[in-house]
Protein backbone atom coordinates (compact mmCIF):
# COMPACT_ATOMS: atom_id res chain seq x y z
CA UNK A 1 0.00 0.00 0.00
CA UNK A 2 2.83 2.37 0.80
CA UNK A 3 4.19 1.20 -2.53
CA UNK A 4 1.19 2.74 -4.27
CA UNK A 5 1.79 6.00 -2.45
CA UNK A 6 5.47 5.98 -3.31
CA UNK A 7 4.76 5.21 -6.95
CA UNK A 8 2.23 8.04 -7.04
CA UNK A 9 4.72 10.49 -5.61
CA UNK A 10 7.36 9.40 -8.06
CA UNK A 11 4.97 9.84 -10.98
CA UNK A 12 3.99 13.29 -9.75
CA UNK A 13 7.63 14.28 -9.39
CA UNK A 14 8.43 13.06 -12.90
CA UNK A 15 5.45 14.89 -14.38
CA UNK A 16 6.54 18.10 -12.69
CA UNK A 17 10.11 17.71 -13.85
CA UNK A 18 8.85 17.13 -17.40
CA UNK A 19 6.79 20.32 -17.48
CA UNK A 20 9.40 22.29 -15.58
CA UNK A 21 11.87 24.60 -17.19
CA UNK A 22 10.21 24.41 -20.59
CA UNK A 23 9.43 28.12 -20.65
CA UNK A 24 12.77 29.29 -19.37
CA UNK A 25 15.19 30.93 -21.77
CA UNK A 26 18.84 31.52 -20.97
CA UNK A 27 18.94 35.26 -21.57
CA UNK A 28 16.05 37.41 -20.55
CA UNK A 29 15.23 40.86 -19.26
CA UNK A 30 12.21 42.03 -17.34
CA UNK A 31 10.40 45.12 -18.59
CA UNK A 32 7.88 46.89 -16.37
CA UNK A 33 5.40 48.47 -18.70
CA UNK A 34 1.82 49.57 -19.01
CA UNK A 35 -1.35 47.70 -19.72
CA UNK A 36 -1.89 49.91 -22.76
CA UNK A 37 1.20 48.64 -24.56
CA UNK A 38 0.65 45.02 -23.52
CA UNK A 39 -3.10 44.80 -24.10
CA UNK A 40 -3.06 46.67 -27.38
CA UNK A 41 -0.96 43.79 -28.72
CA UNK A 42 2.07 45.99 -29.50
CA UNK A 43 4.51 43.89 -27.48
CA UNK A 44 3.18 40.69 -29.01
CA UNK A 45 4.10 42.21 -32.36
CA UNK A 46 7.53 43.77 -31.75
CA UNK A 47 9.14 41.62 -29.04
CA UNK A 48 9.49 38.44 -31.12
CA UNK A 49 11.43 40.54 -33.66
CA UNK A 50 13.84 41.77 -30.97
CA UNK A 51 14.23 38.32 -29.43
CA UNK A 52 14.95 36.79 -32.83
CA UNK A 53 17.66 39.37 -33.53
CA UNK A 54 19.25 39.45 -30.09
CA UNK A 55 18.55 36.09 -28.48
CA UNK A 56 17.20 37.96 -25.45
CA UNK A 57 13.73 37.08 -24.21
CA UNK A 58 11.70 40.01 -22.90
CA UNK A 59 9.39 39.38 -19.96
CA UNK A 60 6.78 42.10 -19.73
CA UNK A 61 5.02 42.84 -16.47
CA UNK A 62 2.10 45.04 -17.45
CA UNK A 63 0.91 47.46 -14.78
CA UNK A 64 -0.22 51.06 -14.48
CA UNK A 65 2.59 53.57 -14.99
CA UNK A 66 2.78 54.40 -11.25
CA UNK A 67 3.06 50.74 -10.29
CA UNK A 68 5.50 50.03 -13.11
CA UNK A 69 7.78 52.80 -11.84
CA UNK A 70 7.47 51.36 -8.31
CA UNK A 71 8.56 47.96 -9.62
CA UNK A 72 11.59 49.71 -11.13
CA UNK A 73 12.27 51.54 -7.86
CA UNK A 74 12.35 48.24 -5.99
CA UNK A 75 14.75 46.82 -8.56
CA UNK A 76 12.32 44.19 -9.78
CA UNK A 77 12.67 45.15 -13.45
CA UNK A 78 15.58 45.99 -15.74
CA UNK A 79 13.77 48.43 -18.00
CA UNK A 80 10.74 50.68 -17.47
CA UNK A 81 8.59 51.59 -20.48
CA UNK A 82 5.70 53.89 -19.52
CA UNK A 83 3.76 57.04 -20.35
CA UNK A 84 3.76 59.75 -17.71
CA UNK A 85 6.54 62.21 -18.46
CA UNK A 86 6.43 64.07 -15.14
CA UNK A 87 6.60 60.85 -13.13
CA UNK A 88 9.32 59.45 -15.37
CA UNK A 89 11.48 62.54 -14.94
CA UNK A 90 11.05 62.32 -11.18
CA UNK A 91 12.10 58.66 -11.36
CA UNK A 92 15.30 59.64 -13.14
CA UNK A 93 15.92 62.65 -10.88
CA UNK A 94 15.67 60.41 -7.81
CA UNK A 95 18.40 58.25 -9.29
CA UNK A 96 16.29 55.13 -9.88
CA UNK A 97 16.54 55.30 -13.65
CA UNK A 98 19.22 56.32 -16.09
CA UNK A 99 18.52 58.62 -19.03
CA UNK A 100 14.85 58.79 -20.12
CA UNK A 101 14.31 58.50 -23.87
CA UNK A 102 11.10 59.14 -25.75
CA UNK A 103 10.03 56.25 -27.96
CA UNK A 104 6.62 56.75 -29.52
CA UNK A 105 3.29 58.41 -29.02
CA UNK A 106 -0.33 57.86 -29.63
CA UNK A 107 -3.25 59.80 -28.28
CA UNK A 108 -5.97 59.68 -25.71
CA UNK A 109 -9.60 59.82 -26.71
CA UNK A 110 -12.68 60.76 -24.73
CA UNK A 111 -15.19 57.98 -24.99
CA UNK A 112 -18.81 57.99 -23.99
CA UNK A 113 -22.22 56.51 -24.63
CA UNK A 114 -23.88 57.07 -28.00
CA UNK A 115 -26.70 58.96 -26.26
CA UNK A 116 -24.09 61.55 -25.11
CA UNK A 117 -26.09 63.23 -22.32
CA UNK A 118 -23.37 65.90 -21.82
CA UNK A 119 -23.41 66.85 -25.54
CA UNK A 120 -19.66 66.65 -26.16
CA UNK A 121 -19.54 64.76 -29.46
CA UNK A 122 -17.41 66.53 -32.06
CA UNK A 123 -15.75 68.98 -29.66
CA UNK A 124 -12.02 69.48 -30.24
CA UNK A 125 -11.44 71.19 -26.88
CA UNK A 126 -11.14 68.47 -24.26
CA UNK A 127 -11.36 70.92 -21.36
CA UNK A 128 -14.72 72.15 -22.63
CA UNK A 129 -15.89 68.55 -22.91
CA UNK A 130 -14.90 67.84 -19.29
CA UNK A 131 -16.64 71.00 -18.08
CA UNK A 132 -19.84 69.89 -19.83
CA UNK A 133 -19.62 66.40 -18.31
CA UNK A 134 -19.20 67.87 -14.83
CA UNK A 135 -21.99 70.36 -15.50
CA UNK A 136 -24.36 67.60 -16.58
CA UNK A 137 -23.20 65.44 -13.66
CA UNK A 138 -22.96 62.64 -16.21
CA UNK A 139 -21.22 59.45 -15.03
CA UNK A 140 -17.44 59.59 -15.58
CA UNK A 141 -15.23 56.57 -14.91
CA UNK A 142 -11.72 57.38 -13.68
CA UNK A 143 -8.87 54.85 -13.52
CA UNK A 144 -7.92 56.13 -10.07
CA UNK A 145 -4.79 53.96 -10.10
CA UNK A 146 -1.83 56.36 -10.51
CA UNK A 147 -1.41 55.16 -14.08
CA UNK A 148 -0.21 57.34 -16.93
CA UNK A 149 -3.77 57.68 -18.19
CA UNK A 150 -4.95 58.63 -14.72
CA UNK A 151 -2.25 61.29 -14.49
CA UNK A 152 -3.24 62.65 -17.91
CA UNK A 153 -6.89 62.76 -16.88
CA UNK A 154 -6.11 64.69 -13.69
CA UNK A 155 -4.00 67.12 -15.71
CA UNK A 156 -6.92 67.69 -18.09
CA UNK A 157 -9.37 68.39 -15.23
CA UNK A 158 -6.89 70.91 -13.89
CA UNK A 159 -6.64 72.60 -17.28
CA UNK A 160 -10.45 72.69 -17.35
CA UNK A 161 -10.45 74.44 -13.96
CA UNK A 162 -12.84 71.81 -12.69
CA UNK A 163 -12.44 69.67 -9.58
CA UNK A 164 -14.08 66.30 -10.18
CA UNK A 165 -13.60 65.38 -6.52
CA UNK A 166 -16.86 67.17 -5.72
CA UNK A 167 -18.67 64.45 -7.69
CA UNK A 168 -16.82 61.62 -6.02
CA UNK A 169 -19.08 58.73 -5.15
CA UNK A 170 -21.80 60.19 -7.37
CA UNK A 171 -21.09 60.90 -11.01
CA UNK A 172 -17.25 60.75 -10.68
CA UNK A 173 -16.34 57.07 -10.23
CA UNK A 174 -12.74 56.13 -9.41
CA UNK A 175 -12.34 52.38 -9.74
CA UNK A 176 -8.62 51.89 -9.06
CA UNK A 177 -8.15 49.41 -11.89
CA UNK A 178 -6.55 49.07 -15.30
CA UNK A 179 -7.74 50.47 -18.60
CA UNK A 180 -9.66 47.34 -19.56
CA UNK A 181 -11.72 47.02 -16.37
CA UNK A 182 -12.33 50.79 -16.52
CA UNK A 183 -13.70 50.46 -20.06
CA UNK A 184 -15.84 47.50 -18.96
CA UNK A 185 -17.23 49.67 -16.18
CA UNK A 186 -17.96 52.59 -18.51
CA UNK A 187 -19.67 50.21 -20.93
CA UNK A 188 -21.84 48.80 -18.17
CA UNK A 189 -22.76 52.18 -16.67
CA UNK A 190 -23.01 54.25 -19.85
CA UNK A 191 -20.24 56.49 -18.55
CA UNK A 192 -17.67 58.79 -20.10
CA UNK A 193 -14.02 57.85 -19.84
CA UNK A 194 -10.55 58.94 -20.96
CA UNK A 195 -8.76 56.05 -22.69
CA UNK A 196 -5.60 55.54 -24.68
CA UNK A 197 -6.43 54.85 -28.30
CA UNK A 198 -4.43 51.62 -28.43
CA UNK A 199 -6.38 49.88 -25.68
CA UNK A 200 -9.64 51.27 -27.07
CA UNK A 201 -8.95 49.86 -30.52
CA UNK A 202 -8.13 46.42 -29.11
CA UNK A 203 -11.10 46.50 -26.69
CA UNK A 204 -13.95 44.14 -27.58
CA UNK A 205 -16.73 44.76 -25.08
CA UNK A 206 -17.70 48.21 -26.37
CA UNK A 207 -21.47 47.93 -26.22
CA UNK A 208 -22.65 51.43 -27.24
CA UNK A 209 -19.48 53.30 -26.32
CA UNK A 210 -17.82 55.40 -29.02
CA UNK A 211 -15.10 58.00 -29.47
CA UNK A 212 -16.61 61.44 -28.87
CA UNK A 213 -13.60 63.77 -28.58
CA UNK A 214 -10.24 63.34 -30.33
CA UNK A 215 -7.55 65.28 -32.13
CA UNK A 216 -6.93 67.82 -29.34
CA UNK A 217 -3.22 68.56 -28.81
CA UNK A 218 -3.88 68.15 -25.09
CA UNK A 219 -4.64 64.47 -25.76
CA UNK A 220 -1.09 63.73 -26.85
CA UNK A 221 0.27 60.57 -25.17
CA UNK A 222 4.05 60.17 -25.11
CA UNK A 223 5.82 56.94 -24.14
CA UNK A 224 9.30 56.94 -22.65
CA UNK A 225 11.81 54.22 -21.84
CA UNK A 226 14.63 54.09 -19.29
CA UNK A 227 17.08 51.60 -17.81
CA UNK A 228 16.84 50.95 -14.09
CA UNK A 229 19.98 52.36 -12.50
CA UNK A 230 22.42 49.45 -11.99
CA UNK A 231 24.21 51.52 -9.36
CA UNK A 232 21.04 51.36 -7.28
CA UNK A 233 20.37 47.70 -8.01
CA UNK A 234 23.50 45.75 -8.83
CA UNK A 235 21.66 42.76 -10.31
CA UNK A 236 20.04 44.83 -13.08
CA UNK A 237 20.91 43.32 -16.46
CA UNK A 238 22.30 46.61 -17.71
CA UNK A 239 23.92 45.37 -20.92
CA UNK A 240 20.90 43.40 -22.17
CA UNK A 241 18.48 46.07 -20.98
CA UNK A 242 20.42 48.77 -22.78
CA UNK A 243 20.48 46.58 -25.86
CA UNK A 244 16.67 46.50 -25.81
CA UNK A 245 16.50 50.28 -25.39
CA UNK A 246 19.00 50.81 -28.20
CA UNK A 247 17.00 48.52 -30.45
CA UNK A 248 13.64 50.12 -29.78
CA UNK A 249 15.14 53.55 -30.50
CA UNK A 250 16.88 52.27 -33.65
CA UNK A 251 15.36 52.47 -37.14
CA UNK A 252 14.57 48.74 -36.94
CA UNK A 253 12.71 49.10 -33.64
CA UNK A 254 10.93 52.25 -34.74
CA UNK A 255 9.85 50.57 -37.98
CA UNK A 256 8.53 47.60 -36.00
CA UNK A 257 6.39 49.96 -33.91
CA UNK A 258 5.08 51.76 -36.98
CA UNK A 259 4.16 48.50 -38.67
CA UNK A 260 1.77 47.41 -35.88
CA UNK A 261 -1.80 47.92 -37.01
CA UNK A 262 -5.20 46.85 -35.73
CA UNK A 263 -7.91 46.74 -38.35
CA UNK A 264 -5.68 48.66 -40.73
CA UNK A 265 -5.17 51.46 -38.20
CA UNK A 266 -1.71 52.33 -36.87
CA UNK A 267 -1.75 52.37 -33.06
CA UNK A 268 1.59 53.92 -32.08
CA UNK A 269 3.74 56.53 -33.85
CA UNK A 270 7.50 56.24 -33.34
CA UNK A 271 9.20 59.57 -32.62
CA UNK A 272 12.56 58.70 -31.10
CA UNK A 273 14.47 60.60 -33.75
CA UNK A 274 12.40 63.77 -33.52
CA UNK A 275 12.52 66.33 -30.74
CA UNK A 276 9.75 65.56 -28.29
CA UNK A 277 6.85 68.03 -28.41
CA UNK A 278 6.08 69.67 -25.09
CA UNK A 279 2.59 68.93 -23.92
Amino acid sequence: MTKILRRGLLAAALALAATGGAAAQDRSITVASTTSTEQSGLFGHILPIFTRDSGIAVRVVALGTGQALDVGRRGDADVVFVHDRAAEERFVREGFGLERRHVMYNDFVVIGPAADPARIAGLTDTTEALRRIAGARAPFVSRGDRSGTHAAELRLWQQANTDPAQGRGQWYREIGQGMGPALNTAAAQGGYILADRGTWLAFRNRQDLRVLVEGDARLFNQYGVMLVNPQRHAHVKAADGQRFIDWILSPAGQAAIASYKVGGEQLFFPNATQPEPVS
Binding site: Q39, G178, G180, N184, A202
Partner: peptide
Protein backbone atom coordinates in the same frame (compact mmCIF):
# COMPACT_ATOMS: atom_id res chain seq x y z
CA UNK B 1 6.46 32.66 -18.71
CA UNK B 2 4.15 33.23 -15.76
CA UNK B 3 0.74 33.41 -17.42
CA UNK B 4 -1.61 30.78 -16.02
CA UNK B 5 -5.29 30.05 -16.62
CA UNK B 6 -6.63 32.48 -14.06
CA UNK B 7 -4.39 35.42 -14.97
CA UNK B 8 -5.13 34.79 -18.65
CA UNK B 9 -8.83 34.95 -17.83
CA UNK B 10 -8.30 38.21 -15.95
CA UNK B 11 -6.34 39.60 -18.89
CA UNK B 12 -8.99 38.70 -21.46
CA UNK B 13 -11.65 40.17 -19.19
CA UNK B 14 -9.64 43.43 -19.09
CA UNK B 15 -9.41 43.42 -22.86
CA UNK B 16 -13.18 43.21 -22.98
CA UNK B 17 -12.87 39.82 -24.65
Amino acid sequence: FTRVMTTAIALETSAGN
